[in-house]
Amino acid sequence: MKALSAGVRTLVWLAVLAAIGFALYAFVRSRPQDVPWTPLDLSQPIGMFTRSKIGGLKDDFAGCRALLDAAGVRYTALPPRDGGAQCGYDDAVRLNAGGSRDLAYAPAGVGVSCRVAAALALWEWQVVQPAAQARLRSGVARIEHFGSYSCRRLYGRDSGAFSEHSTANALDIAAFVLEDGRRISVVGDWTAGQGKADADKAAFLRDVRDGACGVFSTVLSPDYNAAHRDHFHFDQASRGMGGACR
């Protein structure tokens, strides 16, 4: 009886392990973006490890460009730039109109690090457009920005650490122009007014800010400080598994 009981227990444990294995297999098949070892795919929804996978492209410019190519993002690889001090870049791309991206940037042809470009593509498709449809009943036609590359220190100070802008590893987002012509700006619509339309605009801005936290290592908004009252700051600074979202 004891031998039989031990055998039964073994069979039960094998059955449990098999069930767990099948469940993990099904999960990996249905949510590959939530598994750390699956390759990054810009066609997949944002998952638990998407941000860290994008961060892992830091020293893989060719691999990052291959991801953009596979996703249909049109771009031009920029030649390396030596800005002296701690400025310049060797992994930047200029985003071009067309391809699978349905919106434009203004000013046009913004140049950013490839990791920022990959995150922007996911953010546009998985966050910005769904949030605009849900909150404002219109798609987004254009994103206005304050630029990317700028050889400067944090907050333009004379000393201290250099900004991620100094390597084109950041982009400041100012406003969104909808397909129906409405313009939603960070400076004008972050704080809701009296009506439902104002509340929807403010909610949209918070949706796109919160959603950016899944693909950018740093996301700063008016909630962070007064210096960001008129824009969102997105960058891909190396932060390990953690991120800054405020």
Rank of each mutant, 00 (worst) to 15 (best):
A108H: 04
C151S: 08
F162S: 04
G160A: 08
N169R: 13
F146A: 15
A131I: 11
Y149H: 14
S166F: 00
Y155M: 10
S148G: 10
G160M: 09
D90K: 04
R135T: 01
S113G: 13
W125T: 14
C213I: 04
L178R: 12
S221N: 06
R142H: 04
Q194M: 00
K201S: 15
L136K: 04
L103P: 02
A117W: 05
T191G: 03
S166E: 04
A118N: 05
H145C: 07
T167N: 15
G139C: 11
S100E: 14
Q194H: 02
S159A: 14
C213V: 05
G98F: 13
A174M: 11
W123A: 02
A104G: 10
A203V: 06
S150Y: 10
G109L: 13
A202I: 09
Q133V: 12
S159G: 02
T218R: 06
A174V: 12
Q129P: 12
L171S: 00
D90Y: 05
C114T: 15
A168N: 13
V187W: 07
G214V: 04
P107I: 09
A119S: 15
H145A: 00
E179W: 03
D207R: 00
F216G: 05
P222N: 10
R209K: 14
D158Y: 02
A212P: 07
G188I: 11
I184T: 02
R142D: 09
D207P: 01
D210T: 13
R206M: 05
A118F: 07
A104N: 14
L205I: 07
P222L: 10
A192F: 14
Q194P: 00
Y155K: 11
S221K: 09
A131K: 10
R137S: 14
L171C: 04
R115K: 03
A202H: 11
R101L: 11
G195V: 06
A203I: 08
R157C: 00
Y149G: 02
A168S: 15
V219E: 00
G156L: 08
D223T: 14
G109F: 11
A141K: 15
L122R: 05
L205Y: 09
G181P: 09
F162L: 12
F204T: 03
G147I: 10
A118Q: 06
D180T: 06
G211Y: 11
G111M: 09
G195N: 15
G211K: 06
R152G: 00
C114K: 01
R101N: 12
G98S: 12
C151R: 06
